[in-house]
Simulated assay, not measured.
Amino acid sequence: MRGLSDKRAATPAVGIVLIVAITVILGGVVGVFAFGVVDDLGEKPTFAALELTFEEEPASAPDYGKFRWELELTNRGGETVDADEIVVYLDHGNQRVTGTLNRSLRAGETVELTVVHNNQGGNTIPGDVNCADVNVACRLAGDEANYPDDDQIRLQMIHEPSESTLYREQISISGEYGIFNGNPSDIDITDETLTFA
């Protein structure tokens, strides 16, 4: 009888050792996971008050001077956005206009990009813009042979440090004009980088 009793006495001790070992292992796994999540969250954008809008000023040929696309980026409130944090892509077919910031964007501030028609003669450019401005692309064409056959543009806003997409939308356009894809006799322009101002 005594020998049987001694064998039973070892069972609680083994159980306690197993419980302690499992607790330590689970604690380690949870700790690694928790620190990994915290590190990952640290790279995400901490602001959520950025607003990106697109507006088309439609027209019909030959009134090309009214052809205009406007992009506005507004910080509605909260943290200041650093210049290197945000990039905006405006895609029309295989054509792209990229917008970047060259300064911080504080709460309440709005910056913009403008894309207008340019027939190279200069008489179709609206009087309030200049093709040499950092935030103006004179790339709109009114001849369907000179721009992608797509009645939508895609607008994206990316947080560069985390590569997170903050905004993405397909937007219908009139189809009367679009981003000029270059002269076949010259090097095609497929991407132009502007600065919001």
Rank of each mutant, 00 (worst) to 15 (best):
F35N: 13
G3T: 09
Y64G: 06
N118D: 15
H117I: 04
D191H: 12
E43T: 15
L73Q: 09
I22A: 15
A34Y: 15
L18V: 15
V136R: 03
V115G: 05
D191Y: 09
L155W: 04
A107L: 09
L50W: 11
V88Q: 05
T46G: 06
D151F: 00
T110H: 14
L194H: 04
G127D: 14
V136G: 08
A61R: 07
S104W: 08
G65R: 07
P148A: 13
V116D: 05
V129W: 04
E55P: 00
D6P: 00
G36W: 01
N119P: 02
G15E: 14
E176R: 02
T114M: 06
F196R: 02
D133Q: 12
A59W: 05
G78H: 08
V129E: 12
G28N: 11
Y177L: 08
P148C: 03
V20G: 09
V111D: 06
D191W: 06
N102H: 01
G178V: 07
S164I: 11
G15N: 10
T53M: 04
A83S: 13
L166R: 07
D40T: 09
L71Q: 04
I19F: 08
G78L: 05
T195D: 09
Y177T: 03
H159F: 15
G182S: 06
D151K: 01
D40R: 13
D186Y: 04
G42R: 15
F33R: 09
D82A: 12
P161T: 11
V14C: 04
G93T: 04
P184G: 08
L166S: 14
T124N: 12
P58V: 14
N146W: 06
A13D: 13
H117Q: 05
V129A: 03
D39K: 14
I22L: 11
Y167K: 08
V29W: 09
P62T: 06
E169I: 05
V32A: 10
V97K: 01
A49H: 10
E70C: 00
T80V: 15
F67K: 02
V30F: 13
F33G: 08
I171F: 01
D82T: 11
T98L: 15
V17E: 12
T74K: 14
R154K: 14
V97R: 01
T11D: 09
R2C: 02
S5K: 07
E176Y: 02
G127L: 03
D39V: 10
R68Y: 05
E70Y: 06
I158R: 11
V88F: 10
I179T: 01
N146K: 05
V115W: 07
A132V: 11
G175D: 11
L101N: 04
I153Y: 02
D84C: 00
E43K: 15
A9P: 00
G127T: 09
V32F: 14
S172L: 05
E176F: 02
T80G: 03
I173N: 02
E70G: 01
N119Y: 06
E56H: 01
A141N: 06
L101C: 10
G108L: 12
G142R: 03
D133M: 05
R68Q: 14
W69T: 10
N94M: 07
